[in-house]
């Protein structure tokens, strides 16, 4: 029953998160809604259940760290941080504006709660590996979570980082692949077939899981299994998701990778999210 309440509460939070991030992008008239929405449920469970954080002490050394390697979906991260009170909600109105603390891609020097600056794809996993090695050597219990895109695994650097994570047996590193099947120019299948991502990560020495990235219970469950697992291996969670999830006209449409909605689209999107189309 307790578990059920938790699931219901997180599902409500996910709705609020989707509304907040869309409002942020709408007001900025610039940003990336597709991948923000596809990762919204993963981000909900991370920021409202799994990550150990102190919003009023963003640099708490023993925190769980989060690396948004697919930096362009920062609206979902900024919305989480604001909703968790890392900074006032009003800051969201300034996304991508001149002088804002909320840059077009995450900037650790400006935004409380952002652990590393990202934006050029394929680089975040290496940073996450560095953090995980440092925590391991400092006997710091903080874990490192890294969210990356499926298209992003085209970058060879992702595999360099994977080799290193495997070498150092980083079981404090959890990669989450937002496997929404679309990238900027088209479907992943057309641009660069991802094949079986779990098999690839297994071949690079990872303990892998495949889940429905929009199922709150499944996401909760995978984190529980990872916490219980003792294997001396880094983890890769391949989360099957839908780009633009929750907004009918954005779902699985490549064009919504990096485009802001107009007023009519925005109002319809908010209505659909409230009605829980997802």
């Amino acid at each position: 029953m307790l578990q059920n309440n938790k699931v219901l509460s997180l599902e409500e939070t996910a709705i609020a998160l989707r509304k907040t991030l869309l409002t942020t992008i709408y007001k900025a008239q610039s940003g990336h809604p597709g991948g923000s929405l596809s990762s919204a449920d993963l981000m909900t469970v991370l920021y409202f259940d799994e990550l150990r954080l102190r919003p009023h002490q963003p640099k708490w050394p023993e925190r769980d760290r989060f690396v948004l390697s697919k930096g362009h979906v920062c609206p979902v991260l900024y919305a989480c941080l604001a909703m968790r009170d890392f900074f006032p909600m009003e800051e969201l109105d300034h996304l991508r504006k001149f002088g804002s603390i909320l840059q077009g891609h995450p900037d650790m020097k400006r935004t409380p709660g952002v652990d590393i600056s990202t934006g050029s794809l394929g680089q975040g996993v290496s940073c996450a590996v560095g953090m995980a090695i440092a925590n391991r050597r400092d006997q710091n219990p903080g874990r490192v979570f890294c969210l990356l895109g499926d298209g992003e695994t085209n970058e060879g650097q992702v595999w360099e980082a994977a080799e290193t994570a495997s070498k150092y047996q980083l079981d404090n590193l959890i990669l989450l692949v937002d496997h929404n099947g679309l990238q900027n120019d088209g479907t992943c299948q057309d641009i660069m077939p991802p094949r079986d991502l779990a098999e690839k990560f297994r071949a690079f020495g990872f303990q892998t899981y495949q889940i429905d990235g929009h199922s709150i219970p499944a996401i909760l469950d995978v984190f529980e299994r990872i916490r219980a697992h003792q294997g001396g291996q880094p983890y890769a969670v391949i989360a099957k998701t839908v780009k633009g999830r929750g907004v009918s006209f954005m779902e699985n449409v490549v064009a919504w990778h990096g485009q802001a909605p107009n007023e009519q689209e925005y109002l319809q999107a908010i209505q659909e999210i409230e009605e829980g189309l997802s």
């Binding site: 970058e155 060879g156 992702v158 595999w159 080799e163 077939p193």
Partner: peptide
């Protein structure tokens, strides 16, 4: 083969 570029090339050749 530790260089990531090798795996970029590997992906393209398979595709």
């Amino acid at each position: 083969s530790q260089e990531g570029q090798v795996w970029e090339a590997v992906m393209l050749a398979a595709q």
